[in-house]
Design a protein around this nucleic acid. Structure first.
Lengths: 232, 232
DNA sequence: TAGCAATCGGATAGACCTATCCGATTCTAG
DNA sequence: CTAGAATCGGATAGGTCTATCCGATTGCTA
């Protein structure tokens, strides 16, 4: 649609040539499929193959793998932010809260790439990070409301949402396609533990800055990664 | 100790030459440190450097990386099995159950390599797998006892232990050294959700065979891995 | 339609990985 | 003390990856 239009991510640049714009969209669509299936460590070459373009064509448009990842997951981050908006609209804050967690974790399970994206941060991808913050602030509000109704335990901390996504990513990465629904049980258990009244005290939440540093630590560009490979 | 003795893992082989035996132990000690610090995807070269031997020396003694991993974590798996025995000895099954989970998860947090090992299976490392099964069967017994006391929810399934370790590995891998205690909060939440009475039904546990397949899927040998790198 | 810049993609660089080869060294049996 | 075999370790093979180079091609403009 609207060939030759400026791309929103890069408003100052001149419009791309028609073939370049077409390839750009092919690449993003292919990367979406490949990252969803194989995770963030899928190679740029496999994306190129899926898109039917040369490797150089990808790197011309997305100078680093991180930029491609950011471009691919920008709209999935939009859906993520939308899920928070839906949760905020729920007249029952606890119901909205639970629905959000289930939706967001299901998004992780449906896309191996996104599972990891939710546990990372990409400071250079401003649009995506803004969405993430937007979602986070919405959740802070929802959490307050849910606590006010007495259904959410008082010591629940917004950072627990990040921890849930990390735990969920661990289950999803470890089980893969062999046990594709195992995450549901873990998430259900976590949700039950959030319900008031609390059954006991909890260790302190990690510092906000520490958690941010942890999310920053990871970058899709690195030559190696840290977990078993899923692609076989 | 006892230089030149046959190694228990390979009872049919003739004793090693003194320098070889010395190097073998150096390699295992070095690998223990390196895997604990950098995770299972630490390179064989980095282990060799740490041990002060050549790369070939490692591969002569451990023909594949998987065999080195198995040798390194054999005794950690012993500690793991011991933790189950301790839990079984506890006069209060629920207390033993909770203590086991905390101990085992702490072992994961203390060793990035072991965090992953607990979510994998190594069919060729018979001794290690036997220990794992021993521990698992002990836990099945403990779970039954804990249910009998009414403190553990009835629908708790032994496979939930594996899921916890996967979730914990996810938190540990994602937070790394930036938030080294975050896992404690997640584990505490999980434990509270195990306490009877259950706050609601749970999705079914994954099939035993499916979970085994998931644990089998991963091998430390693969050329790539799937998660962000911690070594920087 | 001619010219030219933008774009294309295969080959390649350079880094890292597991694993093997082979000449040099070290231990040990006689 | 002297074979001779076991062991050592640097170099290398062959694979992956991200990223770049550069001659061939394509789309756009005058």
């Amino acid at each position: 649609m609207n060939p030759g239009a400026q791309h929103p991510d890069d408003p100052a640049s001149q419009p791309l040539r028609s073939d370049a714009e077409r390839n750009r969209e092919r690449i993003i669509a292919a990367a979406r499929r490949v990252f969803a299936r194989d995770g963030l460590n899928a190679s740029m070459a496999s994306v190129a193959r899926e898109a039917g373009v040369g490797i150089a064509t990808i790197f011309r448009r997305f100078p680093t793998k991180e930029e491609l990842v950011a471009a691919v997951f920008a709209d999935r981050m939009d859906s993520y932010a939308d899920a928070v908006a839906v949760a905020l609209d729920d007249p029952d804050p606890w119901h909205g809260f639970v629905g959000y967690i289930e939706t967001a974790c299901a998004m992780q399970a449906a896309d191996y790439g996104f599972a990891d994206v939710l546990t990372m941060t990409f400071p250079t991808a401003k649009a995506m990070e803004e969405r993430r913050n937007e979602a986070y602030e919405g959740m802070v509000e929802l959490i307050d409301r849910a606590k006010a109704t007495g259904r959410l335990r008082e010591d629940f901390d917004p950072s627990d949402l990040v921890l849930i996504h990390m735990a969920n990513a661990g289950v999803i990465n470890a089980t893969g396609d062999a046990a594709p629904d195992a995450w549901r049980r873990v998430v259900a258990l976590m949700i039950q533990s959030f319900e008031a009244p609390a059954r006991g005290p909890l260790p302190a939440s990690p510092e906000h800055a520490a958690l941010y540093k942890a999310m920053l630590r990871a970058s899709p560009a690195g030559p190696a990664a840290a977990e078993p490979d899923r692609s076989n």
